[in-house]
Computed example of a mutant assay.
Amino acid sequence: MNNKFSYAAVILQWVLNLSLIVLALILVIFLGKETIYIFSFINDGGELSKLELLEGILVYFLYFEFIALIIKYFEANYHFPLRYFIYIGITAIIRLIIIDHESPADTLIYSGAILVLVITLYIANTKQLKRE
């Protein structure tokens, strides 16, 4: 009975790995499109605003971080490090603040969320919790 479950775990691990590889390829394609979008800012004659350029750069870093997370998953023997999720969360909230900064209360709440994530990152990088 235990042997059947180990086969199921192996099959599910393969499905997960293949899915992550497909996701990584899709993210690489979108990263390439975002690179073209960012470099089009130079040649557009001023049609893109600086805010749109900044948003594009932050989206670029989000793609980059997700690809790095998938790479780290395979390097860490099928384990997602917590701190990479925290990095992605911080970048996403910064992007949200830049895009939606009309309400001061919301901006303050987002800043508090970043502070909580930075504190969490500090705690996750202590010697007792660091696995690598």
Rank of each mutant, 00 (worst) to 15 (best):
Q13N: 04
L25E: 05
F41R: 08
P81S: 09
I26W: 15
K72H: 06
I70P: 01
I67M: 07
I88H: 00
I29D: 14
V116H: 01
N3Q: 08
G45V: 05
I90N: 00
T126Q: 11
L51C: 02
E52M: 04
F30W: 13
G45W: 15
L69T: 08
L69Y: 01
Y110W: 05
D106H: 09
R131D: 11
Y87Q: 07
G46P: 02
L69G: 06
L31N: 04
N17K: 11
G112D: 10
A24F: 02
I21G: 01
I71Q: 08
D44V: 10
K130A: 10
A92P: 02
I11S: 09
I26A: 11
E55V: 05
R131I: 10
E102W: 04
L18D: 04
I97G: 07
L18N: 12
Q13I: 07
I38N: 09
A8W: 04
T126K: 15
E52I: 02
I93N: 02
I21M: 12
T126P: 03
F41N: 11
L48P: 00
I36M: 14
D106M: 15
I98N: 07
K33P: 02
V116T: 04
Y63D: 01
I119N: 03
L25H: 07
E75R: 05
I11T: 10
I114H: 03
